[in-house]
Amino acid sequence: MKNTSIKIIVWLLILLVGGCVDPYRPPEIASPGSYLVVNGFFNSAPGTTSTIKLSRSQNLTDTKAPTVETKAVVTIESQTKATFPLTESTAGTYTLAGVTAQSGEMYRLHVRTTTGTDYYSDYVPVIQTPPIDSVSWRIENNGVQINVNTHDPKNNTRYYRWEFDETWEYFTPYYSALELKNNQIVSRQFSVNQCWRSGSSTNIMTTSTTRLSQDVVSQFPLTFIQGNSSKLGVKYSILVRQFALSQSGFDYYDQLAKITQNIGSIFDPQPAQITGNLHCITNPAELALGFFRVGTIETKRIFISHSQLPNFYTITGYDGCSVDTLTAADIIKSQSAVIDLYDRSRYLTTSDFCVDCRLLGGVLTRPDFWK
């Protein structure tokens, strides 16, 4: 009886404590506020096009795509009063071509929305990015670790940020010579079994060499690819973009990374308001998000072929594909994908997914840079 009473009391306490826990939703999460978001920079390299994208922030619970800011007046202004207007090429995207930033000059971004609200960035210097020395890779932990190396012999840079685009080639397990079109089995006009798929970095990657005697970045980790990833099944390519930052730019991205990428434990940084170097002049209490910078980008691309790797087992995504034999009537009825003629009356068939690589998110067009 005593043990039974103790168990009942314990369960009552658990129910009581559980009933007292209410979910906490900070005001910022439920806030209907929609703030201007600026993404882009003034590319100071000759012959390049600078791109500024404007959009609006949204509630964390929103599932729709962010709203773009259209029909704004966007200009880049120098401290010596030169003004360069940008053109809206597509909705929310503003571009400037044929203008080269002058070394030693200071520039700022000015945005005026259709409501007459003015936003200005701080004036920022032109920062030249040193070249990427190399993008290297090595086998570790049953996968491929990709790193970047760079240095500034003048010891002037000290603050760095990276992004990358990745592309990989893949094939479907079956080549389909025929297709079902208008309930007729006909020859395919083009192959659909070889594709290229692409992705981009999502993490904010920064580092500083201020604590080093030399401005050298050695083996900075960019990304790790599991050995069984379909990215490594045929050929993989990564294009790395390197940006030199000012200290204020580095502080912005570093803090942004800490509060967006290290969330999950009580030891992580607490959420904080980070706005960058943009300000609403019309209403100083209104937020503007983003960081405007002026400078160059350095890029480098490498390829990794499957033949260069150990005998990794690759999960292609096609592991469940199988082949059947059907008559033409059964194919029309089931709308199966046709691989080829099996005999006089039957065909080899499978699902569309197993013969058409586009259904896994790829494209048939070979990238211009592919080799």
Rank of each mutant, 00 (worst) to 15 (best):
S5N: 09
L256E: 08
R188C: 09
T327N: 00
G18Q: 09
P173F: 07
L86A: 07
S191P: 01
T129E: 02
L309T: 02
D165A: 02
R197L: 15
I127L: 13
F267A: 00
P269Q: 06
S345C: 07
N311V: 12
F41K: 01
N142W: 09
V192N: 07
C280N: 15
I297G: 03
I302P: 00
S136W: 03
G40Q: 12
S265Q: 12
D22C: 13
Y253M: 06
P284G: 13
M106I: 04
A257E: 04
E163P: 00
I9P: 04
R161F: 06
Q270D: 15
N182S: 15
R346M: 11
W162V: 01
D330G: 07
Y119P: 04
L364F: 05
G199C: 06
S213H: 05
T90V: 12
T93C: 06
S248I: 01
D152L: 08
G361L: 13
P221M: 01
E105Y: 13
S121T: 11
N142M: 12
L212P: 02
L15S: 06
I146Y: 01
G199R: 12
L278C: 05
T207L: 08
N277S: 11
V355F: 04
V21H: 06
R293C: 01
T67L: 05
L60W: 08
D254M: 03
L12G: 13
R241K: 15
K71A: 13
I274L: 14
N262Q: 15
S307I: 09
V126W: 14
P284K: 13
V148S: 08
S57R: 09
L341Q: 15
T365S: 14
S78M: 05
T48A: 05
N193H: 12
H306Q: 15
N203I: 01
T150W: 10
T75N: 14
L54T: 02
L289V: 14
Y160Q: 05
D62V: 09
T206M: 04
T4G: 03
P271R: 09
P269D: 04
G47P: 12
Q128C: 00
W370F: 00
A272P: 01
C321L: 07
Q247A: 15
Y252I: 01
S237Q: 02
N43T: 06
V363E: 11
D62R: 10
E163D: 10
V124D: 03
F41P: 00
T296D: 09
L287T: 07
F190L: 11
P46H: 12
L239N: 14
I263L: 01
I9R: 08
V17Y: 10
R188T: 09
V144T: 04
Y119G: 04
L360C: 08
G290P: 03
V68T: 12
V74S: 14
H110E: 01
Y347E: 05
D62L: 10
G98T: 03
V68Q: 10
Q226I: 05
T207M: 09
F243G: 07
T275L: 07
S136A: 13
E105S: 12
W137G: 02
G92F: 01
V363A: 13
L109N: 15
T314Y: 00
L36T: 11
V73T: 11
F243C: 11
I297K: 07
D118S: 14
I304W: 00
T349P: 04
L222N: 03
F84H: 14
I29Y: 05
V74Y: 12
V148H: 05
V148I: 11
V17P: 01
T80R: 07
R346I: 05
A91E: 11
D165N: 04
F353K: 12
T296E: 11
R158C: 09
D324F: 07
V216K: 09
